[in-house]
Simulated scan of single mutants.
Amino acid sequence: MYDRDVDVGLAAWLITIVLILALLAVDLVLAAVRPHAVGFKEAVAWSVFYIAVAIAFGLVVYAQHGGEFGTQYFAGYLVEKSLSVDNLFVFVIIMTTFAVPAEHQHKVLTFGIILALVMRAIFIAVGAALLNLFTFMFLVFGALLIITAIQLFRHRDQDPDVGDNVMIRATRRFLPITEGYEGGKLVTRLDGRRAVTPLFVVLIAIGSTDLLFALDSIPAVFGVTEEPYLVFTANAFALLGLRALYFLVSGLLDRLVYLSTGLALILAFIGVKLVLHWAHKDISDSVPEVSTNVSLIVIGVVLTVTTVASLVKVRRDPTARAHAGSLRASSDEPANRQAPS
Rank of each mutant, 00 (worst) to 15 (best):
F232C: 01
G163H: 02
F247L: 09
L145F: 01
I114S: 03
G9K: 03
A320P: 06
A320S: 14
Y62T: 09
A25P: 12
T319N: 10
A31N: 08
V79H: 02
I283Y: 11
I206L: 04
A32C: 13
A99L: 03
M119V: 04
T306C: 13
D5R: 10
A52T: 15
Y2P: 07
I114L: 12
T233F: 01
V305L: 13
T178C: 08
I114G: 05
L83S: 09
A238W: 08
A102T: 12
A102C: 03
D161I: 01
D216I: 06
L30W: 09
F57V: 06
L199W: 01
L133M: 10
A170F: 12
G271V: 04
M119F: 10
Y258H: 15
S326F: 09
P101T: 05
I17N: 00
I124W: 00
T304G: 15
I146T: 04
V314G: 04
W278N: 08
V44R: 07
A195N: 13
V53G: 11
V187W: 10
A335Q: 15
W13T: 00
D332C: 02
R316A: 12
Y73W: 05
I168E: 15
F232M: 06
F213D: 01
H280P: 11
K81M: 13
G300C: 08
T148Y: 05
D285A: 10
I204E: 05
V108W: 00
L23W: 12
V221L: 03
I15M: 01
R156Q: 15
L19A: 03
V29S: 15
L28R: 11
R120G: 02
V196K: 02
Q158A: 08
L139F: 12
P340M: 11
T307S: 14
E333W: 06
T306R: 06
S208M: 04
V6G: 00
V257H: 13
A54N: 12
Y229R: 00
L267F: 13
H323C: 11
Q64M: 10
I55C: 10
A102L: 15
P318V: 04
I124F: 00
A238P: 05
A264R: 08
V302D: 06
T306I: 14
V38F: 04
D210A: 01
G66V: 07
Q158I: 09
R328I: 07
F141N: 04
H323S: 14
V38H: 08
K313E: 11
I20H: 07
R243D: 10
K41E: 15
M95H: 11
R243M: 04
P318R: 08
R169L: 11
